[in-house]
C-alpha cells in the first residue's frame, strides 16, 4: 500500500459519502444518474467476486464490502425509496447504459490477463468502470446547473482514479515485476473522460460561481 493508493481509496470513499449525504440530506437524487449508480453496482459486484475466497487484508475486505453495500443502497434509494424515487428525472437520464455493459463484457472476452471466470469478470469491471460515469456526465450537461454536492461527488469520483494512476506509476518504479496494463490504460481513459468536467469545476471554483457544464 502506498500513499497514492490510500489517498485514492479515501477519495473514492469520500465521493460515496458525499453522494449518500446528498441523497439523505435533501431526500432527493436530482442531478444524479441512476444508470451510473447501477453501472457502479455492477462494477463492484463483478470485481469483488473473490470477496470470500481471496483474503488480502482486513482493509481490503472491509472496503470491498463498503463499496458493494453503498452502491446497492444508493440504487435501492433511487429505485424504491418513495421520496427519493419521485425526484429521479428519467427523462434526463436516457443514456443507453446497457450498451456500455455489453461492450465492456465483449472487450473483456478478448482482452484479459487469463481466460478464467474471475479474470474475465475482473477485466469487465475495469472496462465498465472506465465508462460508467458517462450517463452521469450526460445528465449534468442536460440538467444545466449542478448542485454543490453532486458536483463534489463527481469531482472526487474522478480524482480517485487519477490518484490510482500515480499509484501505478509509483509501483511500476518501485516493484520489479509490476505490470497492470489493463487497469492502467483503462484508468487513464476513465480519468480523461472527466477532463472537461474538471476544467469547468476548476473555473466554477476559481470564479466562485455555480458549476455549469455547456450543453
Amino acid at each position: 500500500m502506498n500513499i497514492f493508493r490510500l489517498a485514492g481509496d479515501m477519495t473514492h470513499l469520500l465521493s460515496i459519502l458525499v453522494l449518500l449525504l446528498k441523497i439523505y440530506a435533501t431526500k432527493s437524487c436530482s442531478g444524479v444518474s441512476r444508470k451510473t449508480q447501477e453501472l457502479y453496482a455492477i462494477v463492484f459486484l463483478a470485481r469483488y467476486l473473490d470477496l470470500f475466497t481471496d483474503f488480502i487484508s482486513v482493509y481490503n475486505t472491509f472496503m470491498k464490502i463498503v463499496f458493494i453495500a453503498s452502491s446497492l443502497a444508493i440504487v435501492w434509494c433511487i429505485r424504491v425509496h418513495p421520496m427519493v424515487k419521485r425526484s429521479y428525472d428519467k427523462d434526463l437520464d436516457t443514456f443507453r447504459h446497457y450498451l456500455l455493459v455489453a461492450a465492456s463484457f465483449l472487450l473483456a472476452l478478448f482482452l484479459h490477463e487469463k481466460f478464467t471466470f474471475l479474470e474475465i469478470f475482473w477485466a469487465f469491471s475495469i472496462y465498465l468502470e472506465a465508462v460508467a460515469i458517462l450517463p452521469q456526465l450526460v445528465l449534468l450537461q442536460r440538467s444545466g446547473n449542478v448542485d454543490n454536492l453532486t458536483g463534489q461527488y463527481v469531482f472526487f469520483l474522478g480524482a480517485y482514479r487519477g490518484l490510482y494512476i500515480l499509484n501505478w506509476i509509483y509501483r511500476y518504479l518501485t516493484e520489479p515485476r509490476f505490470t497492470r496494463w489493463i487497469a492502467c490504460v483503462s484508468g487513464v481513459v476513465q480519468t480523461a473522460l472527466y477532463a472537461d468536467f474538471f476544467y469547468y469545476y476548476f473555473i466554477s471554483w476559481k470564479n466562485n460561481s455555480k458549476l455549469k457544464l455547456p450543453a
Binding site: R5, D9, H12, D54, E113, N167, E175, R177, R180
Partner: peptide, 10 residues
C-alpha cells in the same frame, strides 16, 4: 517474494 496477488487493489 511470491508473485503478489495481482488483485491486491480495490
Amino acid at each position: 517474494c511470491s508473485q503478489e496477488s495481482s488483485k491486491d487493489e480495490l
